[in-house]
Design a protein around this nucleic acid. Structure first.
Lengths: 190, 190
DNA sequence: AAGCGCATGTAAAGGGTTACATGATTGC
DNA sequence: GCAATCATGTAACCCTTTACATGCGCTT
């Protein structure tokens, strides 16, 4: 139910086609709110049916750009101020971590190293983004300032996860057994 | 596709019924990996069909407890070491933050306060959980140690989000306009 | 004219939630 | 006997992903 508002929000910045929106979702929201084009096109049609957006222009290769309507702006504003915030996190690596005890220590170590690297890289990417914004590369519109806030969240979350993965790697014998660093591939289950 | 492994993982700790699993998902994974009972029961049947779990015991009120099979243990171990890690975050509040520029400053301020409070509380809840574990309230099995690692991630993520929300509230005139703290409810769109 | 990137779509399946429904047992 | 809780399920729907398909325009 959030893609809908993601599209409305992006369209509030200016007219765009489904293709444009798919690319913006990809570049800005790749990790945070992935969206594939079939869903985007379908949702755009629904939004148009409801009068929240309307066709702005038809272009070269069947391109159809949409523009947000007043009703659309009202709708997203209402969502932002009165809509329920969904606080679920649903981070798969956390689910996995619940079952680390089933992994062999070396596999776990390798896994955590990769995770730490991945998150550190993500944090770095977001940090570079933030630096470019702070340098003024994208101007200083309200939209850019909001994006800066979003990016800051990305930086902090990825840093937190990178630190966590590193910490988890140093924690006692995380994988199996206790004192004797047990590497038994099949502990006492069942 | 992860609920499947969530169930297998929990069953690796010992036999349990759908009802038990629903409750464990609720208490341990409420925010991180919500799961409703219809999905759980359906998935359990699929897992049983595939021979990854089997009926352990039938109890009083139609209760049916499952036990993981060797094939099931192999399956989750394989997922843990060779399965793809899904790194998408999908945190709705981050999507929302992209559109803060559409909100009126007071609404935004209120929103950020609430968010900060919510995250701080969540972090505190997880911290209490961690403290209980570190005190030894739950013993010191490998499972409990893994859970401790998961909880640590929860603490760090929620702390990061709480700090972020607080920071976002102090950042310049986040809502509308630039220098003159513009509170116009309907900026130049379309 | 060939190939690439733009641009949109359909169909099917997967994954998850909500609403509705029901039966069995325990505690009062 | 009644309510609460345990315990499981079905049906409908929603959201999202994947695979497949196609047409247009630009560049070489």
């Amino acid at each position: 139910m959030s893609l809908r508002y993601g599209l409305l929000g992006l369209l509030a910045e200016g007219p765009a086609s489904g293709y444009d929106l798919a690319r913006r979702f990809e570049e800005v929201l790749g990790q945070i709110w992935p969206a594939q084009h079939p869903k985007i096109y379908a949702e755009l049609r629904r939004l148009a049916d409801e009068g929240l957006i309307e066709v702005d222009a038809e272009g070269p290769r069947r391109r159809r750009a949409y523009r947000i309507t007043d009703a659309g702006v009202a709708e997203i504003r209402h969502w932002l101020t009165a809509g329920d915030v969904d606080h679920t996190i649903r981070v798969q690596p956390l689910l996995r971590s619940l079952f680390f005890w089933l992994m062999q220590p070396d596999d776990l170590r390798r896994h955590l190293d990769e995770e730490a690297r991945f998150y550190a890289e993500s944090a770095a990417r977001y940090r570079a983004f933030a630096a470019a914004k702070d340098r003024g590369d994208y101007g200083d519109s309200p939209q850019v300032r909001s994006m800066r806030v979003t990016v800051e969240a990305g930086i902090r979350l990825y840093e937190a996860l990178a630190d966590w993965a590193t910490w988890a790697g140093t924690v006692p014998p995380t994988g199996a057994g206790g004192p004797p660093a047990d590497a038994d591939p099949d502990p006492e289950l069942t």
